[in-house]
Nucleic acid binder design. Structure first.
Lengths: 225, 225
DNA sequence: TAGGATTAAGGTTGGTTAAAGGTTTTCTCC
DNA sequence: GGAGAAAACCTTTAACCAACCTTAATCCTA
């Protein structure tokens, strides 16, 4: 689960990064509106935390722009206390929620969970489970029947995506969009390579879970009887 | 657009009713949890404004209950200032948003608009049914009476087309247009081949559904008595 | 410079299609 | 009405090729 922070106060951004990483989110932070826009448009994020007052490009304009581009990533606005007008503008322009600075960590985390849940995302627990496997996305570890091994980032992201989508078939396009960003040049072969890596590791663990191919459509995770 | 207010402070409830009616919403208000629950379960509301502290049945329990019953109406919680724990509980239990009392009218209206906008998502249904068969078009699986087997892409597309057209007869030309593209060179025989494949699989499943030929016209799906 | 990401290349599989031969229905003509 | 012809449809098979898999080499980047 990947979150982008767009916040010009570097200290706050770093504090948030730490807090969110502790909750097993993947976090990137940028400190001006233009970088925020560029990153947000990649489409690889599951949620944006967006300050309103930003150098180069303010948060409201950034938000409007990505919505015009068809990016529907949930957005939580970070506002200074008392900027009620800004809050309303943000909500009307496509924000999902806002939170006023300073805020309680617990409240922020609850709002993030709520926003992700609304978008139909399954909110990750500490460890993701499917069949007899257990994936630790922050530690990049995959466990099964006591045995455990390390994954590399792309493997973990791929398996996480497949687990979160449960019984739905996931196309290579969707995988590319999620792992490499929607305008990336990544080839189908990239996906195939990581599917192959993952299958080898699942086999090594004797997992009952397998990645089955639906030819011409995509991949789906299955727990064997 | 119909809104239900569940709020025990009668004066506040009435004030809210006036405000919302001025915005052309249809509004009903009740003043205790049990009435709130009964009304919410009717499913006729587009949005609920839900106080947490309520006589008879508190807001969190009410919320949990309607979510368990499968009611997905957006819910905005109304909380007393400083009840951060309640807010978090509400968001985690399926609330879409909350607003702390006392609140600005403009902010409430913006949150209502945001919540209503969010629920406009259409989730595509991918299990098609006809007679006693069930077709999963994304997973390419055909099920009947517990049994299940895999289809290949063209079989699935063909069966999907026949199911969607219900009892209308579908010509080979229409099938070719849909499966092979408008200006394709595909022959009638291609269609016949896949009809044959599908019939074999339907027979294997003992399905009561069959593809009957209308000579010179096309094919139509029928569920035998 | 090591570990991870990407690219490249060759091998494998199976969905699609074309072809061929069979069956059923419709038409024609005596 | 029946024989024969023609048209429409059915079924099976086999080859081709796009999609997929796997391994290894190469490119990055911290």
């Amino acid at each position: 689960m990947r979150i982008l922070i767009v916040e010009d106060e570097v200290h706050l951004a770093e504090a948030l990064t730490q807090i969110l990483k502790k909750q097993h989110y993947s976090v990137d932070a940028v400190h001006d509106g233009q970088s925020g826009l560029d990153n947000a448009l990649s489409g690889i994020y599951d949620l944006l935390l967006l300050d309103i007052m930003l150098p180069e490009l303010d948060g409201i304009t950034l938000l409007k722009t990505i919505r015009e581009q068809g990016v529907s990533t949930p957005v939580i606005m970070l506002t200074a206390k008392g900027e009620v007008d800004d809050k309303i503008a943000g909500l009307d322009d496509g924000a999902d929620d806002y939170i006023a600075k300073p805020f309680a960590t617990g409240e922020l985390l609850a709002r993030i969970r709520a926003a992700l849940r609304r978008k139909g995302e399954v909110v990750p627990e500490d460890a993701l489970r499917f069949g007899d496997i257990e994936l630790n996305t922050s530690g990049l570890k995959l466990a099964c029947k006591g045995k455990e091994l390390k994954l590399i980032l792309k493997e973990s992201e791929l398996l996480e995506l497949l687990i979160l989508r449960k019984q739905a078939v996931t196309s290579k396009e969707q995988i590319i969009e999620k792992l490499w960003g929607f305008d990336s040049e990544a080839e189908h072969n990239n996906v195939e390579v990581y599917v192959s890596f993952l299958r080898k590791k699942l086999a090594f663990l004797n997992a009952s879970v397998r990645i089955s191919t639906i030819r011409g459509v995509g991949y789906v995770l299955e727990a064997a009887d």
